[in-house]
Structures are given as C-alpha cells and as structure tokens.
Amino acid sequence: MSMVLIAIATLLTIAMIGAAWVTIRAKKVATAMLAAGLVSLFASVMFLFLAAPDVAMTEAAIGSGLTTFLFFFVLGRVRGGSDD
C-alpha cells in the first residue's frame, strides 16, 4: 500500500516538474498557460494524497480552473501584441 502511494507520488512529481518545464520553455504563451493549469491540477491530486481534501478542492476549483480562465480572458484581449 505504502509502496503504491510512493510510486503514484513519484509519478505525480515527474508530471508536475515536466509541466512546469513546459510552462517556462513553451514557444506559445497559450501552451504555457495550459501547462501552468496542469501543474495546479496535479498539485491538487498531491494535496489529496497529503490528506488535505479541503485544500485539494480549493486548488482544483480556484488554482486550476478560474486562474486558467482569467489568463485566457486576458490573452484573448491582447492578441496581436508582441508574442515573445
């Protein structure tokens, strides 16, 4: 049981660091924003494993959902600006 948990946590860690890498290295800003949302989503699963369901719920609803949408709202408004 514990081994399975540690294996899942390691997988999550790899996924989060990979998504964070995409965030700072992506060519397009939109990709970076989606990857940042993905980091938040994986973090919310990690919170669930850390026995914090309240925080997991908040992170999934706010950190992953609303923040990404706010980013895309603003990105839609500044289209045509110097993209990199």
Partner: peptide
Amino acid sequence: VFVNGHLTPGGGFQGGAIIASAAL
C-alpha cells in the same frame, strides 16, 4: 458545497468559486 462546509470538505471559498464558474 458551502452549506455543508462544516461536515465535509468544502466551504465558502470553494462554493464561491463554483458559483463563479457558473457565471463563466
């Protein structure tokens, strides 16, 4: 979610975010 905040995970902040997502 926010009415059951004292019994289950969740509460005002999560429920508020869910309501805002309906507006979204």
